[in-house]
């Protein structure tokens, strides 16, 4: 992370909105459920100039109230980056944790957001409370997270946090790798049998932004919609292939899945493969070339006759 100004979240939001530097501010607010935060998206009125905005006391008050509601703490679980797709042509500021910041880098690499219209507010994070554990613990993913501090930011709220040692690969994936193929298949089958093809994982994934997802395409029809697990497998295997070298491990898919399908296992596996094979970590470096856009003449050839 490059050195940048440490600021107060609300002061910054107020200033950015008031000066018209941004039209949309994407952050967090307290949610109605315990131990959760909800997204808070603050717009200046569409099409209203800065001056008009200032002359409208109601709008002014509304804006001030919203800015006051902004929070950032260990409940702010959601990856807000997905909202960037919705405000493609607007000037946006967004609050990102370390993991989320990698999603932003991914989108910059893939030209999905205009850096000139984006203000990134980094939020160093020690990990998010796992509400399923009643707040006693942080998420496993957070314990294994290698980027507690954002990799890209224009402003930072709060001091950088220490980066604990993290395993190269999540112990669960490592354990699964060691099982015989039969048992790995059983696990995969079990996970896939849970899937109801609701596509929440895709909809929440910042890297899934195709206009027409292959799963929705009819010509050709890649994915069937029966409850045969092979349909879920087709969907997930192809989606995993699409995310190869791109998934940053933000965990949005797993958190959003209503059926608790553990997609992290598979994304983690591919992520570690890509790192080991090509030394590449998605979302770490805006100018790095993604491994699947490249090739090496000396790439592994052992699996080919």
């Amino acid at each position: 992370m490059t050195a940048c100004k440490q600021v107060d979240l609300k002061t910054l939001a107020r200033e950015l909105l008031a000066t018209g530097k941004v039209e949309v501010f994407i952050g967090y607010q307290v949610a109605t459920q315990p131990l959760m935060a909800a997204p808070l998206i603050i717009h200046t009125a569409l099409g209203a100039s800065h001056a008009q905005q200032a002359s409208n006391p109601d709008a002014e008050r509304d804006l001030a109230r919203k800015v006051d509601a902004l929070i950032f703490d260990d409940r702010c679980e959601m990856n807000l980056v997905n909202y960037l797709h919705k405000f493609k042509d607007r000037k946006v500021a967004i609050v990102v944790k370390g993991c989320d910041s990698r999603s932003v880098v991914g989108l910059l690499q893939e030209k999905q957001v205009d850096r000139k219209k984006l203000i990134i507010i980094g939020a160093p994070c020690r990990g998010i409370i796992d509400r399923r554990q009643a707040g006693s613990e942080i998420y496993t993913a957070c314990r294994e997270c290698p980027v507690h501090n954002p990799v890209i930011a224009d402003y930072v709220i709060g001091a950088p946090v220490p980066q604990p040692e993290t395993p190269e690969l999540s112990p669960e994936v490592e354990a699964l790798r060691k099982l015989p193929a039969e048992q790995r298949w059983e696990r995969f089958h079990k996970e896939m049998s849970k899937c109801i093809l609701c596509y929440a994982c895709r909809n929440l994934c910042p890297a899934c932004y195709c206009k027409t997802c292959f799963a929705d395409a009819s010509k050709p029809k890649w994915v069937g919609r029966t409850d045969d697990p092979s349909d879920a497998m087709m969907f997930h295997l192809q989606r995993l292939m699409h995310l190869g070298g791109r998934c940053t491990g933000c965990g949005a898919c797993v958190r959003g899945c209503p059926m608790q399908v553990d997609l992290r296992l598979y994304n983690d596996h591919l992520r570690s493969h890509v790192k080991q094979e090509y030394g590449f970590m998605a979302g770490m470096d805006e100018v790095a070339q993604p491994p699947l856009a490249m090739y090496g003449t000396d790439d592994c050839n052992e699996f080919i006759r």
Partner: peptide, 13 residues
């Protein structure tokens, strides 16, 4: 054009 999101992968490949 309806499907392209201009991610630039094809250009690189």
């Amino acid at each position: 054009a309806e499907r392209c999101v201009a991610c630039g992968l094809c250009e690189k490949i």
